Simulated scan of single mutants.
Amino acid sequence: MGLWPFQRKKDVLGDRIKKAIRASFGFTPKKIDLYKLALCHKSHSKKGAVKNNERLEFLGDAVLDLVLADFLYERYPSKKEGELTKMRARIVSRECLISIAEKLSVGKEIPVRKQFDLPRETIIGNTLEAIIGAIYYDIGYKRCMQITLQAIRNNIDMDKVLEVNSDYKSMLQEWTQKKKKRVEYRCEEVTIGEDEKKFEATVFIDEEPFGNGRAGSKKNAEKRAAKQAWSKLSM
């Protein structure tokens, strides 16, 4: 018996993938066929067929490079080209991509034949790149960049991976100079409890408070305020 005109055949796989993308990346995909393709490894397609995720993996690899180049260029204005290239390479390393993919539960939706001899960890790392390619094609670069960076931040310690200088005051100073903004620290001594003295610092950017810090010395209080401000700017 055929379907009535007002009835639609249920897309079980599409619904499952849509739910998985929403849970892992925080948005609802529009063109679900792109994600079906992104999750189809070549071992699952017929010999010689192009209906697998390799082309989307190629696209996603390039998009990921651009997203990270964009992010690093903006976040580290004093870093030279060679340093930025090395920093990006650490994030897109196989080890990092596999770790991110596993935490995003990417592997649960990938149809792969059991006899295929490529390590499954490698497959899900490649598939993450294919998904990024699908996201870019589906909703455009700007949203893709936001979603990709959020997925990376949520699943790895980016500062630890990059091994960046943790002098947040200097980093904040460089950023405000580049943006032609004014940064100012205001600090006061406060009493905690009955007799414990602390310094509380607030950092202002163009007269707007961006971060607070409290410590036993004025210098350390300002450092903590700068770190909080930098975290807000990096979100």
Rank of each mutant, 00 (worst) to 15 (best):
S93F: 08
P77Y: 03
K51I: 08
L104M: 07
L72T: 07
K79A: 11
S105G: 14
K51W: 12
L104D: 05
K79S: 08
A69M: 10
Y76P: 01
C96P: 01
C96V: 13
C40M: 15
E54R: 14
E102W: 02
L34W: 08
I110V: 14
I32S: 09
R55G: 07
I110G: 00
A49L: 02
R55I: 09
P111I: 15
K46A: 14
E81V: 10
P77G: 04
S93Y: 07
L68E: 02
G82N: 08
K80N: 12
G107D: 04
E109R: 08
L68W: 00
S43W: 06
V92K: 03
A69R: 13
E74I: 09
L34G: 05
V112S: 13
S105N: 15
M87G: 00
R94A: 14
V67Y: 02
D65Q: 08
I110A: 07
L64R: 01
K80F: 04
G82E: 06
K46T: 06
Y73G: 00
A38Y: 13
P111R: 14
L39V: 05
S78G: 01
D70H: 10
K79F: 10
I100W: 01
S105R: 15
A49H: 07
E109W: 11
K42G: 02
K80M: 05
E83D: 10
N52P: 03
I100S: 02
D33M: 10
D33I: 10
A49K: 07
I32D: 07
S105I: 02
S45H: 04
R94N: 07
L59I: 14
D70C: 01
K36H: 06
